[in-house]
Design a protein around this nucleic acid. Sequence first.
DNA 1: ACTCCTCTGTCTATCGATAGATAGCCGTTG
DNA 2: CAACGGCTATCTATCGATAGACAGAGGAGT
Lengths: 195, 195
Amino acid sequence: MNETAERLMDLAESHIRNAGYGGFSFRELAAEIGIKSASVHHHFPTKATMAAAVASRYADRFLAAVVHQPNETAEDAVAMYRSAFRTALDRDGRMCLCGVLGAEAGGLPPEVAKATRTFFRRCIEDLSARMGGGPETKARALQVMATLEGGMVLARALGSIDAFDQATASLAKPVEISKPDEASKAKTTPPEVCP
Amino acid sequence: MNETAERLMDLAESHIRNAGYGGFSFRELAAEIGIKSASVHHHFPTKATMAAAVASRYADRFLAAVVHQPNETAEDAVAMYRSAFRTALDRDGRMCLCGVLGAEAGGLPPEVAKATRTFFRRCIEDLSARMGGGPETKARALQVMATLEGGMVLARALGSIDAFDQATASLAKPVEISKPDEASKAKTTPPEVCP
DNA sequence: ACTCCTCTGTCTATCGATAGATAGCCGTTG
DNA sequence: CAACGGCTATCTATCGATAGACAGAGGAGT
């Protein structure tokens, strides 16, 4: 992968996370790294191609950042996801890329919608597996992801990260799902991860 | 309020809920009701003005639809919010208007961002009050709104309303984790409200 | 070593489409 | 008459995308 292409993807990701799919243009990206918009097409044939590439790279990075740790509990896994999103929200004030794209899913080119779908599928599967597997953990995984994504939406809309913290506070010490003694162990400092 | 203006707002609302702020244009709206795009400016001077008007009308309608019922419990209030969002999601496959706008908050004109913020403030305040008031109910209200908004994002991204049902199942009876038939129960028991 | 060829990355120039917005005219209606 | 609500016509800006040219790097063949 080219370095120019990488920088273009970085910029595109930043813009999408800030303002959605319509929040960036080839001209804008090109100007920001000092080339012409036509040159961007050399790296990515279409805008949809580029956005889809950004989305799947984002998925890879995110899932690598929240990767399963040895001896982790279900709460650890949830805390890790929470921390990852919070860090990104706090560091550059931007929310989950696929959260933005998912919200405007109805207006996305098919390949971008597909990449977005894949991100959530992978997250749900990963989270569910790390919480023990089974149908009830899938519902729990969906609830966790929903609360986190929604928490970011609230934080962005209200302009305060406190909204995210309060909205997702209950995830840190969740309703007991499987083993009651896991709650006591969950006090271990959640790792500071971020995609 | 003019009838043409109403119809324009209806269409704009539908488009925004489907594809975000960039998901509609004056030309598109005008064509759909059989007038010219220039005529839309007669009713709404700018696109931002229109979107802001749509957002605050949406807020009014939504809060009227989930209005406090006599003798309701905190769970009733939450169930009412849940049902309102679910109905809209189910009926026309579209999510909360302010959820979409909140996700792309970084790219919105100031007045639209403000209207979006106001919607969430009003919801949080209303929900919090109906759950007894106090700081801990505010956090709970934020959690409920986050889970609902995120649940809609997931349902849209994954293309299945089941994702919403499972993600928000724990809100219906907070302590209990999802039972398989809870989704169908939620469709009939609470009032069928929708903004 | 020298030439030829290909590939890469960028450029200029331009396309057609669409965006939001404006100015001014005109018919209907109260 | 005067206000309202729509129209025609047009502007400027920007969009994604394409065509074609050019410079440089590097390998292959002689």
